[in-house]
Structure formats: C-alpha cells, structure tokens
Amino acid sequence: MPDSSTALQTPTHGHADDPALLHHFAEPEQQRNAASLGMWIFLATEVMFFGGLFCAYLIYRLKYFGEFAAASQTLNWQLGTTNTAVLICSSLTVVLAIYGAQRSKRALMIGSLVLTIILGFAFLGIKADEYAEKFEKHHVPGPSFQFAEKIPGHPDQMADPNHAQIYFSLYFVMTGLHALHMIIGIGLFVWLLVAAVKRRFTPHYYTPLEMGGLYWHFVDIVWIYLFPLLYLIDLRK
C-alpha cells in the first residue's frame, strides 16, 4: 500500500492551499490516481498469491474428488453462509463510509467504519468457532488427524484419510491466510477510524479510505470464491 500516512500530516513545504497534496504531485487527481494504481498493482500480486493456492486446490480436488466431497461435508455450511453474509454486509459498510466522506456526512462515515470493524471481528469469531470444532474432531492435519467418513454417493466406500488430510491442509492454509488478511484489514480500519475521528478526511481528500476499501473488498472477493469451493462440494449426495 502506498504510504498515504504522510499525506495525512500537514507538510512543511509544498502546496499551502491543499495540505493533503504532497509536494511532488502537481494536482490532487494525479496524487489520487498514483495511489489507486499502486493499490491495484498490490492487489494484482495478491491475486497471484491466492491464485497459486486455488490452483493447488483445483488439482487435488480433481484428483481426489470423493475425499474432498466427504471432507467438505463435515464443514458447517450454515456457519459458512453466515460468514459470507457478514463479509458482504461489511463491504456495504465500507462503501457507505466512503460515501459519507464524499458528502461530509461524518456520522455515517464513522458509524460505517465502526460497523465494518465489528463485522470483521464477527467473521473472525465465527471462524475461530469453526477452527475449534476441527480440533475437537481431529480434523487438523498432523499426527492426530483422524477421518472416518464414507465417500458421498458411495455408501460402501470409506474415504482415504490421507487424501482428506490434503483437503484439510488446503482448508486451513486458504482460510487461515484469508483470516490473516482480515486481521490486517481490521487493523487498517481501526487506523482509518482514528484518522476519521481526528477529522483528517474531507470531501476533497479521503484517499486512505478508498485504498483501505479496495483491500477490504478484495478480501471479500477471496471469500466469495472460498465459500462454495470449500463448504459446498456435492452436498446433494
């Protein structure tokens, strides 16, 4: 993320008429476009980062589909659906915060930022509950891993625990990395909330809000793919 924190401070030199404009930019639009381009390039690296994991997931799902379906069905899809809804609502509160900043609606901006942080914690809380269940069921990859489920649609065939373990390894790495992004996102939004409370954003300058928002929406998009791929394999059978 581009260093927009310096833009929040009043520079000692540069554009006296616009304290948010750094001296090496000619005009606010140029500064904003530079920040936006930098953020999108960062998101491009994030897409490739998660892309490798999705690729690994697809390869093993193709190879061990029966075990992936059996392992997927031990997950609680109701909790997964709830978490998807929580993230979608948090994405709405993010755009509402920016909308509030654009139109000098301070209460809307600050209220939306607080809601975003609360929804972020709600997501992590539900996720922690799901992780705890995995530990209880010995579904965490490692020496104590146990898996004795039948392959869906094949009542006489037991799933190979080693192949199910691959599913759970991918589950923990992908959702864990996503949760790490959520934790970083919550940190970012606490920082944005502090800046908003300190009246650092105006209808002319709210770039950090927009950049934080781009990050939050990206993390939401990752979950939009993780949810059906991890929770909803072959539920009918």
Partner: peptide, 20 residues
C-alpha cells in the same frame, strides 16, 4: 489501471487454465 486489472485476470487464467 485497466491494463493492471485486465493483465491480472489474464495471468490468473494462464496459471489456472494451463495447469488444469
């Protein structure tokens, strides 16, 4: 910005489609 977004999707497709 459009170039960045479109090339991101293109490279993701190269990764996923060619691997699969």
């Amino acid at each position: 910005l459009k170039l960045v977004v479109i090339s991101t999707i293109a490279f993701l497709f190269i990764l996923l489609v060619l691997s699969m």
